[in-house]
């Protein structure tokens, strides 16, 4: 439903602005051109996306997630104290974070939902740890941003992965500040 509003809204805004700027013919020409751009983008992305989800399947079977989870344990205990006692939650949580890190969105979400159910502890409000889990998930810490790389390739980029260090620094900062903000707000926010 949200998308219907966004799509219709964009069309309405375009028409109003085209009337004001007198760009009517450009507006009309943009319609078939945009549709063509859409299919060009999709086709030129398809190769990289498809290959990468093949790699994702391999990483799942090769046990990369399990390996990373072990490395993550000490950090996990600090950010989510209840994982010290709740082994099941710890398992789901680290699987969620590691799958996200490896870009395995399909594997990450079900694990994250299981973790969220454990951290919710049957309450109807979001516990501090649940808030932190979601902030961590929205900050998107990712080793290889494959989708963006595919978009860059489709636009003729020769070095699609040269943004990797920048992406790592950026998502690390946003996760860090998001968690800090959540931690501070968790101290002052009343329950419910």
């Amino acid at each position: 439903m949200v998308m219907s509003w966004i799509f219709t809204g964009i069309l309405g805004i375009s028409i109003v602005f085209a009337c004001v700027t007198g760009q009517g013919s450009a507006l009309a020409a943009a319609i078939p051109k945009g549709a063509q751009n859409g299919i060009t983008l999709a086709i030129s992305m398809a190769g990289a996306i498809s290959l990468w989800s093949g790699v994702g399947k391999l990483m799942e079977h090769a046990g990369f997630t399990a390996f990373l989870s072990r490395l993550l344990r000490p950090v996990l205990h600090r950010v989510f104290p209840s994982t010290k006692t709740d082994i099941t939650a710890a398992g789901y949580l680290s699987a969620n974070i590691c799958a996200n890190f490896l870009g395995l969105g399909n594997a990450a979400t079900p694990m994250g939902i299981q973790a969220a159910r454990r951290l919710a502890k049957g309450k109807d409000y979001a516990t501090n740890e649940l808030c932190r889990l979601i902030v961590l998930n929205t900050a998107s810490i990712q080793l290889i941003p494959a989708t963006v790389a595919a978009v860059r390739v489709s636009q003729g980029c020769q070095t699609p992965f040269d943004i990797l260090p920048a992406v790592w620094i950026t998502s690390f900062c946003s996760a860090g500040l998001g968690l800090t903000a959540a931690w501070i707000m968790g101290k002052v926010w009343h329950n419910g």
């Binding site: 939902i113 309450k123 649940l130 903000a181 707000m185």
Partner: peptide, 28 residues
């Protein structure tokens, strides 16, 4: 992301999750 996770966990009151997540986004 927020709607998927809270929907699945049956959470009504999201408390400070949205502002914290948006702070993370803005930082990004």
């Amino acid at each position: 992301t927020i709607s998927v996770y809270f929907g699945a966990a049956g959470i009504q009151k999201t408390r400070y999750t949205l502002p914290a997540a948006l702070i993370a986004d803005l930082t990004g």
